[in-house]
Design a protein around this nucleic acid. Sequence first.
DNA 1: TTTTATTATCGTAATATTGCGATATTATAA
DNA 2: TTATAATATCGCAATATTACGATAATAAAA
Lengths: 107, 107
Amino acid sequence: MGITKTQIFDRRQNELAQLFKILGHPARIAILQYISKQDACICNDLVEEIGLAQATISQHLKELKSIGLLKGEIEGKSMCYCIDIDNWNALQQNLNSFFNTTKQNCC
Amino acid sequence: MGITKTQIFDRRQNELAQLFKILGHPARIAILQYISKQDACICNDLVEEIGLAQATISQHLKELKSIGLLKGEIEGKSMCYCIDIDNWNALQQNLNSFFNTTKQNCC
DNA sequence: TTTTATTATCGTAATATTGCGATATTATAA
DNA sequence: TTATAATATCGCAATATTACGATAATAAAA
């Protein structure tokens, strides 16, 4: 008990929930907003900007990468994290599709 | 440690994260999808349909109500939960606004 | 009033998430 | 090669979430 019962839901439900869940943390929202304001981005900027430890920021970046919203390129000895705009748009469409189909037929 | 540092983020970031977070569970996605397929809805249907205990379903319904996506009316000795279509549309717009403004200026 | 049915709440156990210090890894600079 | 700098990973402590049985609350039916 305590564990989410993934197996009783279908693939689409689990996938949607996973996407929403990763977006469901203020640090990750803040990271996305900050990156979108920059031309480029290095992680160390984020540590100062957001106010969390370097290890914590790195972890959040990893999660955002896991759903494809960020892509990171090595740039010298630092990293350049960017929003993957194709995946970003696809995600937005995906979520909108959920919102549009789910609100049908409601009393 | 372990606790989300809400205070270092602004109101908008925390609000967005909260909305995403509540949508970030497959049972709550499934509940929304099931309700939208019905003309009406009673909680007991959900218990059979979803396959979680009654107490658990009730808890998830409460969370969906907390962000305004569901409204519940007493109907005899059972409850009629429905999607609040106005709030639903507002939420969709709210999230789209985040997606549209955040993807700007990316490298 | 008593029973029955439905939903909400409480308490608790199990798992997940968050955050960070310490350390490893990787790549440039000296 | 040896620093130095930037990021990733590991391990742990603290908090949050999930799920459920037991029970309370509420309202119709008997």
